[in-house]
Write a protein that binds this DNA or RNA. Structure first.
Length: 260
DNA sequence: ATGTCACGCTGGGCGTGA
């Protein structure tokens, strides 16, 4: 199974790049975050034109997650929302079973600042994710993939000194992400690329991508029922393409898995 | 720290969020 996780920063603005991704990688499932679209405006027809369809959980202007699969695969047991999440209306969690694997597309709140109410919500979201994933991992093969808005280790940001007093690197966030690994989930990138950088996000401003000022905040966490064969961050999608279509500020994480 | 995007609302620039 080829699984991709990608925060697209608006599926309508990114449609040419999403189609490009599907045509180049022909994935079995794509976990998409930040669709930033209302359900009635989701671009289903454009995906159908290249042989894919989406199950979506949409908020409207912000957030929004989706699972995109090729026409020949079914998505069973679709469940939108995370039990116990702080604000179910934000549309940050979507589950479906594809090829016998329970797959989650997750968009963890950013948190804004460590003293902001949204930071408390971020921690509560991660706690709710732990409870739900504990159930899912016990039940069978599970992958949760998405934008966690947490850098696990100091080496997962370009310069840890620049993050004094910032979110994404605090012990409260990192311990909660490590709690997910302790459920029996494997950080797919680290499992097969133990010494590589693996940044998945670069700020649009200040030439951050060109200057290597990135963070590894997008993950595929894979239960031990499955084997990870290869993982790539496809940084071509962080640049304009030949047609001048703009990139997301995140690059897609491409994961090759064995299925049971 | 901030040099950019994308959204809605509205009809071109502002407020919000990342």
């Amino acid at each position: 199974m080829r699984l991709i996780s990608w925060n697209v920063n608006s599926i309508r603005a990114r449609l040419p790049r999403v189609v490009e991704l599907l045509e180049q990688h022909r994935p079995d499932v794509v976990c998409i975050q930040e669709t930033k679209v209302a359900a009635e405006a989701f671009p289903h027809e454009a995906l159908a034109a290249v042989g894919y369809r989406a199950v979506e959980h949409s908020e409207g202007r912000w957030n929004g997650v989706a699972l995109v699969v090729p026409d020949h695969l079914e998505v069973a047991g679709i469940q939108a929302g995370l039990p116990g999440e702080p604000d179910p209306a934000e549309a940050r969690w979507l589950e479906g079973t594809v090829g016998g694997v329970r797959i989650v597309s997750a968009y963890v709140p950013n948190g804004r600042e460590p003293d902001h109410p949204m930071f408390v919500a971020k921690l509560r979201f991660l706690d709710a994710a732990r409870h739900r994933l504990d159930e899912l991992v016990a039940a069978g093969p599970t992958v949760v993939a998405g934008d966690f808005n947490v850098a696990l280790e100091d080496r997962d940001v370009w310069d840890i000194a620049a993050f004094a007093g910032a979110t994404h690197v605090t012990p409260d966030e990192r311990s909660r992400l490590m709690d997910l690994l302790d459920l029996g989930l494997v950080d797919a990138f680290r499992a097969v690329r133990p010494d590589d950088e693996g940044f998945t996000w670069w700020d649009y401003r200040m030439g951050a991508f060109r200057r290597g000022m990135g963070m590894r905040i997008d993950y595929a966490l894979v239960s031990r029922h499955l084997d990870v064969h290869a993982v790539e961050v496809d940084t071509r999608f962080r640049r304009n393409n030949a047609e001048g279509d703009k990139p997301s500020d995140h690059a897609p994480l491409v994961v090759e898995l064995s299925t049971p």
